[in-house]
């Protein structure tokens, strides 16, 4: 059997390149935008941070999509499916590889934010001072930021397990349907499966939220429970995905 490390390595190589390319593209776009500003008018205060933040969003989305594609690729290609490991190891390593690349991207973004924020320190301070609302202590603010980050990461994982679930259910179902009007059937299948998966996941999420509401009087406890809830649903989806891989999902023929 191939070791986890080896599988992780081959899965991550391409993803690392892709992620790095997105980062380079992001930097290039930021640079061009700023240069454009310099050329046409003066750079206003806060523009470094602002431009970085506004390009960071699409870049996050791009990485998410590229990693999703890489994930799904693995399930239907002999190149990966024939690696001598069990489906569970293949699946979890695959997910972990994408997740680590996402973290890598996230850390680069934090660095970018820190750099641009320090350039625009005065401006940001001004904005923060201008925010009215509940007074947070540094500790509370830190907790909120970390909580939001964790929630974001949990959502990313849930996103991937859900995409896989839809893909694998459609792929497995395909084997049992007649070979006529393929495309039409596929479209219908995708719509139905996406609807079902989103409905079920939504329902479960809602239930978890209710549970949180009952168990605590809101605030921190509920928030943590929400994150756990998302992860639980992700795990359930992952288990179904692994089962589908084992039983029904075939690779694309030679």
């Amino acid at each position: 059997m191939t070791s986890f490390g080896s599988v992780f390595k081959v899965m991550s190589k391409d993803r690392f390149r892709t992620t790095s390319k997105v980062i380079l593209a992001e930097l290039a776009v930021i640079a061009v935008t700023l240069l454009w500003s310099v050329a046409t008018r003066e750079v206003s205060s806060g523009e470094f941070f602002g431009v970085t933040a506004s390009w960071s969003g699409p870049a996050f989305l791009a990485v998410f999509i590229f990693m999703s594609v890489a994930n799904e690729h693995v399930y239907t290609r002999d190149t990966y499916r024939l690696i001598p490991v069990g489906e569970t190891k293949l699946y979890t390593t695959n997910l972990l590889s994408s997740f680590v690349m996402y973290l890598y991207f996230g850390i680069v973004q934090v660095v970018l934010y820190t750099i641009t924020a320090s350039i625009d320190a005065d401006f940001i301070k001004g904005i923060l001072d201008g925010i009215t609302g509940p007074e947070y202590t540094n500790l509370e603010a830190g907790k909120i930021v970390i909580g939001l980050l964790l929630m974001g990461l949990a959502m990313v994982i849930l996103g991937w397990t859900t995409i896989s679930l839809v893909h694998l259910v459609v792929s497995a179902t395909n084997n049992f349907l007649p070979n006529v009007s393929r495309r039409a059937i596929n479209v219908v299948l995708y719509v139905v499966v996406i609807y079902l998966v989103v409905r079920v996941a939504g329902f479960m999420l809602h239930e978890v939220n209710n549970l949180g509401g009952i168990m605590s009087t809101g605030g921190q406890g509920q928030f943590i429970l929400n994150i756990v809830g998302i992860l639980v649903i992700a795990v359930i989806e992952a288990v179904i995905n692994i089962f589908l891989l084992k039983k029904w999902v075939e690779t694309i023929p030679n």
């Binding site: 002999d78 990966y80 024939l82 694309i252 030679n254």
Partner: peptide
């Protein structure tokens, strides 16, 4: 089935690349 993979060498068409 999973154990077969380490015994078998198949001419897969490198679609994963």
């Amino acid at each position: 089935a999973t154990h077969h993979k380490s015994h078998i060498s198949f001419t897969e068409q490198l679609r994963g690349f």
